[in-house]
Computed example of a mutant assay.
Amino acid sequence: MNVTKVFGRRVRHFRSLKSLSQEELADLCDLHRTYIGSVERGERNITLLNAEKIAQSLGEPLVSFFTEDID
């Protein structure tokens, strides 16, 4: 599995654990809802700055978004 897909699956996983919608997460990150959706589908090769925004908004260390195992 490629890194964008792994990252996207982890974003969806952590977002779901916090019971956030894509729109709510997007608001927390100051990003667009459709951007979050495309990240979760692994369609975007995002910048490290946006990856860090997402991780901080979800309260998770950035490194935890790059492991394939889902808790």
Rank of each mutant, 00 (worst) to 15 (best):
C29A: 04
V11L: 01
I70S: 00
T47H: 01
R12A: 14
F66Q: 12
V6H: 11
S21V: 09
E68P: 12
F14C: 06
E60R: 14
K5S: 15
I54E: 02
R9S: 14
K18V: 09
A55Q: 06
V6M: 15
Q56R: 15
E60N: 10
T67Q: 13
E23D: 14
N50K: 06
T4H: 05
E40S: 10
E52W: 12
S21R: 08
D71F: 13
L58S: 02
Y35P: 09
M1A: 10
E43P: 10
G37C: 12
R10F: 05
L48T: 06
R10I: 03
L17G: 09
P61E: 08
T67Y: 13
S57D: 04
G59N: 02
S21A: 08
V6K: 13
R33Y: 10
G8F: 00
T34R: 00
S38E: 14
R9H: 12
F7S: 02
D30N: 15
T47R: 05
L17D: 09
L28H: 10
T4E: 07
H32W: 04
V6G: 12
R15K: 06
E43R: 15
H13S: 15
R15E: 02
H32Y: 04
R41V: 04
E52Y: 14
S38C: 13
R44M: 08
E24H: 10
P61S: 09
M1N: 11
S19I: 13
L48G: 07
L62G: 03
N45K: 05
I36G: 07
R41W: 05
G37T: 10
S38D: 10
R33V: 12
P61K: 10
Y35S: 10
A51Y: 08
E68F: 11
E43L: 15
T34Y: 02
K18W: 07
K18H: 11
Y35C: 11
R33E: 11
R9F: 12
F14P: 06
S16E: 00
N2P: 07
D71Y: 14
V63K: 15
L58I: 02
K5F: 15
N50P: 00
V3M: 13
R44K: 12
K5A: 15
E24N: 09
L25W: 01
R15N: 03
Y35L: 12
T4Y: 05
R44F: 03
S57L: 06
A51F: 04
L28M: 13
F14M: 09
F66P: 09
T34P: 02
S16L: 07
I46E: 02
G59D: 05
G42S: 00
E24Q: 14
R44W: 07
V11D: 05
E60L: 11
D69E: 14
E43G: 13
R33I: 11
L20S: 06
G42I: 03
V6E: 11
F14S: 07
L62S: 00
S21T: 08
I70P: 06
G37H: 12
E60D: 10
V63C: 11
I70F: 05
A26N: 04
G37Q: 11
S21I: 06
G8I: 04
V11K: 00
L62Y: 02
V11E: 01
R44V: 05
D27L: 15
N50E: 01
H13P: 08
G59Q: 03
